[in-house]
Amino acid sequence: MSLLNPRAMGEHVSYGELDWRNEFLGARVRVALWLRDEVGEGGTFRKQEIRAVITGTEQVDRRMRDLRPAGWVIRTYRDKPSLQPDQLYLEKIGQPVWEREHRAAGLRQISAKTRRAVYERDGHMCRRCGITAGEEYTEGAQSRARLTLGHVTPYKHGGGVEAADLITECARCNETVQHLTGVQMSPEQVWDRMAALSGPNMKLLMSWIAVDRRHLGKAEEVWALYRQLPAEARDRLAGDLEDLLKR
């Protein structure tokens, strides 16, 4: 089956009973089929389009988000700046959740309480690269970080959905770990950087390694919390802090 964008090819692909128009199928399956048939990998779409065609069900947006743990990569304007705020980009079609053996793929839900606890435990920053929400990556201008949760041990190897099973990651690190994509340093390259550190920095790094956590300064802790706020609130607080410093 081709994963090219059917809309770009001027075609509509039909798969008999496995059709997104079939209201007897679950909403998550219908959303997946619509994305497969009407968008395709590399295609863009809008949430309004899904809401218009997947009728008779509530929380269609959530059903679309539920595809991500099954390996579907759907980008927003936050991590792909070329998109409009209401556009989404289907980068990768994941597991075929329309097939019976894959219907439950990625459906073990993480509770909102657990999600908050993990983010707070990890200082609201990626435990792998240290970036906070909304920060630009040092390489690749205009690419900003979005925080998500990853698994210490993958589902398929027995990982669970409790706080101890989860780790805060940015979307880029999460996908690198899951799909082995992107640039990843070798142990030798990391060692070269370790060995080049000054004595005090080596000791600092060793203290982090010993507890598997970076000790944050007070300013860094507040910075990570600040990055979680909406842009309007950040602007207001920046002005308040500037006024405070002038006193």
Score class of each variant (00 low, 15 high):
Phe24Asp: 13
Met9Asp: 13
Phe45Arg: 00
Asp66Tyr: 12
Val13Phe: 09
Phe45Asp: 10
Leu67Asn: 10
Glu11Val: 14
Gln48Glu: 15
Tyr15Cys: 15
Leu67Ala: 10
Ala8Asn: 05
Leu35Trp: 04
Leu67Trp: 04
Glu11Cys: 12
Glu49Tyr: 01
Arg7Ile: 14
Val29Trp: 00
Pro69Tyr: 00
Ala52His: 07
Ile50Arg: 01
Glu49Arg: 08
Lys47Leu: 11
Glu49Trp: 05
Arg28Trp: 05
Lys47Ala: 12
Leu4His: 09
Val39Ala: 08
Leu4Gln: 08
Lys47Tyr: 12
Glu23Thr: 12
Met9Leu: 15
Asp61Lys: 06
Trp34Cys: 02
Ile54His: 06
Met9Gly: 09
Val29Ile: 11
Phe24Thr: 09
Ala52Ile: 02
Glu11Trp: 09
Ile50Leu: 15
Arg68Pro: 01
Phe24Ile: 01
Thr55Gln: 14
Val53His: 02
Thr44Arg: 14
Ala32Gln: 07
Val39Glu: 05
Val60Arg: 00
Tyr15Pro: 04
Arg62Tyr: 00
Glu49Val: 08
Met64Ser: 07
Ala27Gln: 05
Gly16Ala: 14
Gly56Glu: 07
Gly16Arg: 03
Phe24Pro: 00
Arg36Asp: 11
Met64Gly: 08
Asp66Gly: 10
Leu18Lys: 14
Leu67Val: 02
Gly10Ile: 01
Gly10Ser: 04
Asp61Ala: 13
Val39Pro: 00
Arg28Cys: 02
Glu11Met: 15
Glu17Ser: 14
Leu25His: 02
Arg51Ile: 09
Asp19Thr: 06
Thr55Ala: 12
Ile50Val: 15
Arg68Ala: 13
Pro6Gly: 07
Glu41Lys: 10
Gly10Arg: 00
Gln48Phe: 02
Glu41Thr: 08
Gly42Ser: 06
Val39Lys: 05
Thr44Met: 14
Val60Ile: 10
Glu38His: 08
Phe24Cys: 09
Trp34Gly: 01
Val39Asn: 03
Pro6Ser: 04
Gly43Glu: 01
Gly40Pro: 02
Leu67Pro: 03
Leu4Glu: 11
Lys47Arg: 11
Pro69Phe: 00
Glu38Met: 13
Leu35Thr: 12
Arg51Phe: 11
Asp66Gln: 13
Leu33Gly: 01
Leu4Pro: 08
Glu38Ala: 13
Arg28Val: 02
Asn5Ala: 11
Glu49Ala: 14
Arg21Cys: 05
Asp66Val: 10
Leu33Asn: 01
Arg21Gly: 08
Val13Ser: 07
Ala52Gln: 09
Arg62Val: 08
Thr55Glu: 11
Leu35His: 02
Leu4Asn: 09
Gly10Glu: 08
Leu35Tyr: 02
Phe24Asn: 10
Leu4Lys: 10
Lys47Gly: 15
Gly56Asp: 05
Asp61Arg: 07
Gly16Val: 01
Gly40Asn: 04
Lys47Val: 08
